[in-house]
Structures are given as C-alpha cells and as structure tokens.
Amino acid sequence: MNDYSTLIHQASMGILVLFSLVTWAVLIAKWIQLVKLRRQNQRYAERFWSTANFNTSVTAQEHQGQLARLANATHLALSKGREGPCPVDGWSRQEVLERSLQKQIHGERHLMEHGMIVLASIGSTAPFIGLFGTVFGIIHALQAISTAKSASIAVVAGPIGDALIATGIGIAVAVPAVLAYNFLGRRLKLMIADLESFALNLMNRAQRHGFELGDGHATETQRQLSGAA
C-alpha cells in the first residue's frame, strides 16, 4: 500500500504539471490565432470599404481572414443564384445569401472555439486531481509516521506538508486555465459580434445592388429596361 500511495501521489503531480504546460500552450496558440485573425480582418475591411464595385469587393480569393471568407461566401451564393437553367429571383437569392453567411459564421465560431474545452476541463478538474494526490500523500505520510513510531511535530510536519503541496499545485494550475478561458471567451464573443456586423453590411450592400454581382448602375439600367418592355 505504501508503494501504491507514493505512485498515485507522484502520478497526480505529473498530471498537474502536464495540465499546466497544456494550459499555457493553448493560451499562447489561441492568442496568436486571434491576433492573426484580427490583422487579416483589418486589412480586408480596409480593402472592402475602399472598393466601389460590389463584385470586386466580394472577390477576395487572394485575401485571408474571416471577413474575406464571408465575402467569398457572398460571392459564391450570389453566383449560384444567377447560374443554371432557372436563375432564382431576388428574394430567393437573399435567402440563399443569408443561409450562406450564417453557415460561414458558424464555421468561424467552431474554428475559434477549438481548444477552449481543454481550458475549461483543466480549470474544473485540476483542483480535484491535486486533492486526490494530497489524499494519497497523506496516507503515505501516516504510514511513514506509523513506521517511525513517533507523532512529534518534527516527524509529522514534513510528510504532511509534502502531501498538501499537491492541492496547492492543483489550484495554481486551475487558476490560469480559468482566467485564460474567460479572457479568450470574451475575445471570441467580440469577434463573433464583428462577424455578424460585417455580415449585415454585406447583406445591406448586396440589397442595394439587387443581390446581383454586377455594378449597381448596370443593375438599375436593366430594371428600367425591363419595366419599359
């Protein structure tokens, strides 16, 4: 039993050290990802609002980032709407565009949330793993005290103190994981809100062009000719 208690105590400490490394690795990776996405979105947003032609503004194959992928989804949705033997009308193109943008936003959310469950799991389980290690550490300490046949403070303090270290490490591992989860979760919500806002801008701009990829002036001219006919 003595050997098993020591082994379990050491295994708990090893798991906590591994959890700590994973927490910081996920935090650094997610931070780099968010900074990269923010820069990509800023570059494309400048290009989108500086381009007068709607078709050109949503043609973003050479750009990277979430906003560029939303623009490409817009271009693809509207292109499908005017192709084929039976092109759909404006209302149908609007519905297709709305579904395409919603699907793309869901995909972006899933991509950004990748790894967040790891932080949540570590933050919730690390204290219990530390406590688990402490229990078996205390068992090992009590067995050592029984073997020494002495209950003096000099004999008790050392083994019990070593056992309680596991609880402290568990809390020290959990706190950064919880803080990282809350911080990154807040940043993700803000970025999702920005994506939804940009999607509305895409919908508004597409509506002004009759959900067509051509130039707005050309679209208006076609409407006038159709009305005259």
Rank of each mutant, 00 (worst) to 15 (best):
D3K: 08
Y4T: 08
I8Y: 01
G14C: 10
L16M: 10
V17I: 15
L18M: 07
L21K: 05
V22D: 08
W24G: 04
V26K: 00
V26L: 04
V35I: 06
R39L: 13
E46P: 00
R47F: 01
T51I: 03
T51M: 06
N53Q: 11
T59V: 00
T59S: 15
Q64I: 02
A68I: 00
A71E: 03
A73V: 05
T74E: 07
A77T: 04
S79A: 14
P85C: 04
P87T: 03
V88P: 01
D89M: 09
G90Q: 11
G90C: 12
R93W: 11
R93D: 02
R93H: 05
E98C: 12
R99G: 06
Q104A: 14
E108M: 15
H110I: 01
M112W: 08
M112V: 08
I117D: 07
I122T: 01
T125Y: 04
P127G: 10
I129Q: 07
L131S: 10
G133H: 04
T134V: 08
T134G: 11
T134W: 05
V135M: 06
I138A: 08
A141Y: 10
Q143T: 07
S150Q: 13
S152G: 15
A157Q: 13
A157S: 15
G158K: 13
G161R: 12
D162P: 00
L164I: 10
I165M: 14
I165L: 15
I169V: 15
G170S: 09
A172K: 03
A177P: 10
N182K: 14
N182M: 11
K189F: 01
M191T: 14
E196C: 12
E196A: 13
L202M: 07
N204T: 03
Q207N: 10
Q207I: 01
E212I: 00
G216L: 09
H217M: 09
A218G: 03
A218V: 08
Q222R: 15
S226P: 01
